[in-house]
């Protein structure tokens, strides 16, 4: 039928997108997990004779302003950025889910107080708050993680709360209460399971976001110490050479940030399509 193409826009396109994303994410995971221990190469090895070499066979991504291999630096940088992203996103999700679920499930005063706090926090720009938090610590990985986690649970809390609120008013919750279910049982058995997929999705979507945040903090010189390769640091230290026309120290770390984060977002999108209520079309009987 002619409608086929219209009714199901790009089923194949979507599949291609998912597969590509999955391949990239797998490749990235392998690279950051396997390369550093196997390669036995020193990413910090300075080689002033070969500083700012353009991409070549020996250095496929070229070298930086002190002659370090950029490919290696990028892999290490990605490793650090991913670690920060994952841990920060997970922490933020746990905090957000707990707070959102409590606010939604209890309602009333609890909800009002929590939501006012959330509103107040979200009125401050993320980055500003993040900068404020890292500024209180000595530069390092953990302050960055804490800063990103503490600024990112808010959206998850909002999502989880609204999800819990919409579930809570469903008759099936009433039926559970009528059937003798305790408050805990209602939350644990009926509310949380319904919310977890959304929270998980929020977590995955947050990883790229957190990576960008880490990069931004590092780029501003507030994140990781300068010698530690993170994607943000790499781009930051390459600023000077970019003005001199040396494009590779900026481009490759940039791509290393953009491509994996897009791939992650692509996978998250596919997941969202799965967990959202199945489309009516297949069930219209």
């Amino acid at each position: 039928m002619a409608e086929t193409a219209l009714a199901q826009p790009g089923r194949t396109t979507r599949r291609v997108r998912v597969v590509t994303s999955a391949v990239i994410v797998t490749a990235v995971a392998l690279a950051v997990l396997v390369v550093p221990p196997l390669a036995q190469l020193d990413q910090q090895a300075v080689d002033l004779a070969n500083k700012l070499d353009p991409p070549s066979l020996a250095h496929p991504f070229g070298t930086d302003d002190v002659g370090r291999d950029l490919l290696l630096r990028c892999v290490y940088g990605l490793r650090v950025s991913l670690l920060v992203g994952l841990v920060a996103a997970l922490t933020a999700t746990v905090i957000g889910t707990a707070i959102g679920a409590l606010a939604g499930a209890f309602g009333g005063w609890t909800d009002r107080v929590v939501m006012r706090v959330v509103d107040a926090l979200s009125s401050i720009p993320h980055l500003l708050l993040g900068i404020f938090i890292v500024a209180m610590f000595r530069p390092g990985v953990w302050p960055v993680i804490v800063s990103v986690a503490l600024t990112h649970w808010i959206s998850t809390a909002r999502i989880v709360r609204s999800e819990v609120l919409s579930l809570r008013s469903r008759p099936f919750i009433d039926a559970a209460v009528s059937g003798g279910a305790s408050r805990t049982r209602v939350i644990v058995r009926h509310l949380l399971p319904g919310v977890l997929p959304q929270a998980g999705l929020a977590a995955v979507l947050m990883v790229p976001h957190a990576m960008w945040h880490e990069s931004a903090l590092s780029f501003l010189g507030l994140g990781l110490p300068a010698h530690q390769a993170s994607l943000g640091n790499l781009v930051q230290s390459a600023r000077g050479s970019l003005l001199a026309g040396d494009w590779w120290p900026t481009l490759f770390p940039g791509l290393f940030l953009i491509i994996p984060t897009l791939a992650l977002a692509g996978l998250a999108g596919a997941w969202r399509d799965r967990i959202n209520p199945r489309r009516k079309s297949e069930l219209m009987l």
């Binding site: 039928m1 009714a7 219209m284 009987l285």
Partner: peptide, 22 residues
């Protein structure tokens, strides 16, 4: 409900999902 009458209506309006054949 479920006897097929709404599907019939959708078929007349060309509003069937893509996995349907008429």
């Amino acid at each position: 409900s479920g006897c097929g009458k709404s599907v019939l209506a959708s078929a007349l309006l060309g509003l069937l999902p893509a996995n349907a054949r008429t």
